[in-house]
Design a protein around this nucleic acid. Structure first.
Lengths: 96, 96
DNA sequence: TATATGTTATCGTATATCCGATATTAGCAA
DNA sequence: TTGCTAATATCGGATATACGATAACATATA
């Protein structure tokens, strides 16, 4: 049976939100999402989204060493997240 | 540019939520969603979802007169909404 | 240097969402 | 009954999501 509220469509929003709280790598994000969703998203899910967020200019690499690439929000990304939060709230303000 | 947080994927969840608050017709739902999203979903968006929710046994027609069909949650639908709310909260608890 | 390990990246595909356009139906009025 | 209106229903198609599988890459260790 088709599921209800299966979180489809909010991945980029969530990822923007997570990166906004703290700079994160793709793997950090997978781990954090596992905590929230119960299932760990596959690499093929996360990395293309990271790429898109970069291309949109919403996140950028944190200059660093190590094999992990950490990302942080750009100022444009902060603005986008702000807008997205607003839309989210309008939509779901009475959810409990 | 691809949008972030465009509400895709949460339509059935939202519709279940709205019908849970008050019995509603397809058109009522379109009007309410317009308030929340800013844009009014097309009939081709709403009615197939209503049909699916019926087929899942989550909503049922309210016996009534008039050309509008009002729907209400079934007990199974109430349970499903409860589960969905729980998942929603796990996912978005720290959203602001 | 060579190997192992873990992170990142890409590709093709299946699925679901949602829309616009169009048809159908039900009730109302003349 | 006939026409009008509004709600409902259906269809095809465009788009996006997310996955599994696989490859590439960088770092650390032997």
């Amino acid at each position: 049976m088709k599921k209800c509220c299966d979180m489809k469509g909010f991945l980029s929003f969530l990822m923007l939100h997570l990166i906004g709280k703290q700079s994160m790598s793709g793997d950090d994000i997978r781990t954090e999402l596992e905590k929230r969703k119960g299932t760990k998203p596959s690499p093929g899910t996360i990395y293309p989204v990271l790429k898109t967020l970069c291309e949109n200019g919403w996140i950028e690499e944190v200059p660093s060493q190590g094999k992990e690439k950490k990302y942080q929000l750009t100022s444009s990304g902060k603005q986008e997240l702000k807008n997205a939060n607003k839309k989210f709230m309008c939509m779901f303000y009475d959810m409990k």
